[in-house]
């Protein structure tokens, strides 16, 4: 992505002035334009009037819970939203992701990680069309023919394993919650059955990862879900 020709605008909604300043410094340094809002109400107003390209939203806002801001936003907009929260708020993060947030970041965060997430998010918005094949490491996936090869050899996947792989590849770089995967693959009644997922993920890693116990691509987002990482 080139930052010379296109300067995306990011709206930061956070009540902590220090965090806002920190984000502004980091983002402007990377070529983003930044708007700030110190509460949920003003943030929503900004989002509606100024139409930014992405939003960074803190979950702990004093006037309106972050989750509420997100829900109201999602009533009319599909703008990419990155959630900021602290360690130990897994339940809130899951709720936000299920309510339509695109990704999350835990405080304290490194500048590099923040920018990588933000760029991945923007890229997904700009090129949402599906690819006909995908490649990571020595694995190739041909979506059209439903064929998966590793180091040239065909890997046999069960229909559910293939569906899981396809779902993760479709949302490359984005975290997907357990519930989202379970609903997609097993239907709404299986939303709590995380053990299904663990079992299938183990199979997938054993078939596709070089070191299944220390996976490189099929990453676990502890207590939240999975993320396919790898370009």
């Amino acid at each position: 992505m080139s930052t010379d020709t296109f300067q995306p605008e990011v709206l930061v909604i956070d009540d902590e002035v220090q965090i806002r300043r920190l984000l502004r410094v980091t983002l402007e340094g990377a070529g983003f334009r930044v708007r700030e809002a110190e509460g949920g109400g003003p943030g929503l107003a900004e989002a509606a009037t100024k139409r930014p390209d992405a939003i960074i939203l803190d979950l702990g806002l004093p006037d309106l819970p972050g989750i509420e801001v997100l829900k109201r936003l999602r009533e009319w907009s599909r703008l990419p939203v990155l959630i900021l929260s602290v360690r130990g708020q897994e339940a809130d993060k899951i709720e936000a992701l299920d309510a339509g947030a695109d990704d999350y970041l835990s405080k304290p965060f490194g500048g590099g990680e923040l920018l990588a997430r933000l760029r991945a998010m923007l890229r997904r918005v700009q090129s949402p069309e599906e690819e006909s094949n995908a490649r990571f490491g020595d694995v190739e996936v041909d979506f059209a023919r439903r064929v998966v090869t590793k180091a040239g050899a065909v890997v046999k996947l069960t229909p559910k394993e293939y569906a899981l792989l396809r779902l993760l590849l479709l949302h490359r770089g984005k975290v997907i919650t357990h519930r989202q995967i379970l609903r997609e693959l097993w239907g709404p009644k299986a939303e709590e059955q995380t053990q299904y997922l663990r079992v299938y993920m183990t199979h997938l890693r054993q078939k596709l990862e070089d070191e299944p116990n220390q996976p490189e691509y099929f990453r676990t987002e502890s207590g939240i879900g999975y993320r396919f990482s790898g370009e």
């Binding site: 220090q18 920190l22 980091t26 602290v86 130990g88 304290p108």
Partner: peptide
């Protein structure tokens, strides 16, 4: 308390990263 202690620390840590 958790929020009050962690937020400034997060700012310091994040700033130091940069």
């Amino acid at each position: 308390v958790s929020h009050e202690l962690k937020t400034p620390l997060a700012v310091i840590a994040s700033a130091a990263e940069n």
